[in-house]
Design a protein around this nucleic acid. Structure first.
Lengths: 222, 222
DNA sequence: CCAAAAGTGTTAGGAGTACACCCATGG
DNA sequence: CCATGGGTGTACTCCTAACACTTTTGG
């Protein structure tokens, strides 16, 4: 029976300062020494693909319980010059307020980069990142994935900034708010964020309704 | 380094008599002996995942140049009782007029079944089939995959039947025709299909415009 | 002449988009 | 007092969905 080496790679996104960022690690050994790569690792004999991805994600970022979805499996025989490696790619979304722990054990060489203008990447990781960005942009329009990138308490302006950062264009404030309101999943809080201007009301997601919409599409064209 | 056995499985759909059908093979050996399974096989060291899927598809059906798209990778450690096998699932769409050659070398034990009411399936193949059906239904609504299931020359009624069979509901004839017409990819022929009632005009796709619309999924040249 | 599928337009309602002004605050 | 982002409503357009009758043929 043929056996192949199989890895999981995880494209980890977050949004900071209104910019979509991706976690990359610097390679310390050839090939592509010194270049950046998408974090990943081999799958163990006894763990599922998703467990492997979760483990890798935890090792790199110290977070659990975030959005994680299988992206695509890349298996060109020449994608790794050392020999054949098939990789099952995942992507994850982490809200900025869960990110304090970025100094995990393996995180020494990890750093956040601009998702839309990444540095040169090892292997076929440029393709993988582009694939992830494409999926993210598409899913943004017909699912609620975008909500994963916002802190637990957030303003409508912050939520809109998520959409604008990923879609790469500006959205109309009034239309955006009307559509979000129509979903009926926001719970207004009696708290306001004071940022030096007019205070903005904070919201959180009403989890019961949120679960219903999760991943299934109440539609979202912007 | 950990190595895993990796297969490709292909969910092969066609539409016959207005019913969506899926190609299944009867297992001749344990486990699940005598039960049906989705066709598949191991990936060779030197072939890409897609090449493996194409090879498998050709061995089972004798067809090439049909729609083929990666579906999802299934890797639960317990999905195969004999030991760990990861499978990269693909799905393919074959128009009925390409299907004359179903008697391929390995096709002895292959047969078409109702996609929506399949017999009991081996391994986790029920999940894989359901995943494929879900993908197909979703893509039907925002891509041109449905066009892959219709013969080279077809009537508007036949095209509509494809959509109705996959979506599992009836569509309004006038609205359907208007939408298709808006795409501007149909080339009316000076031929009519005579089926015992009022003859229906035949169409084919205008390939130039069709290419423009083709989904990012891999659409092989006609 | 009858059964069965082909073919053809109009209308009403909902969703999407474009658009401008006042407000509250911190500095 | 002013710069900055917060917050709000309306009007037009376009897409979608609902809906019924005539035509053509083979039997």
């Amino acid at each position: 029976m043929e056996s192949l080496r199989v890895t999981v790679d995880i494209v980890i996104f977050t949004l900071r300062d209104g910019i979509l960022q991706v976690l990359l690690v610097k390679r310390g050994v050839p090939p592509f020494e010194g270049q950046f790569a998408i974090p990943g690792g081999f799958i163990r004999q006894d763990e599922s693909l998703e467990d492997a991805a979760l483990r890798e994600l935890y090792e790199e970022t110290g977070v659990r319980n975030v959005f994680l979805e299988q992206l695509y499996t890349f298996g060109d025989p020449k994608r790794d010059p050392r020999g054949r490696v098939v990789t099952v790619a995942y992507y994850a979304l982490i809200a900025s307020d869960k990110l304090s722990l970025v100094a995990g054990a393996e995180a020494a060489e990890a750093q956040w980069s601009l998702a839309n203008e990444p540095p040169p990447l090892a292997f076929d990781h440029k393709s993988i990142l582009e694939f992830a960005l494409e999926r993210l942009r598409n899913k943004l329009e017909y699912t609620t994935v975008g909500f994963q990138l916002v802190p637990e308490k957030f303003t409508l302006g912050e939520l809109q900034a998520v959409y604008e950062a990923i879609l790469g264009r500006q959205l109309d404030k009034r239309n955006f708010r009307r559509k979000i309101a129509l979903l009926g999943i926001l719970k207004p809080l009696r708290e306001w964020r004071h940022t030096g201007r007019k205070p903005a009301q904070l919201f959180r997601f009403a989890s019961a309704r949120f679960e219903k919409l999760k991943d299934k599409g109440i539609l979202f064209p912007f």
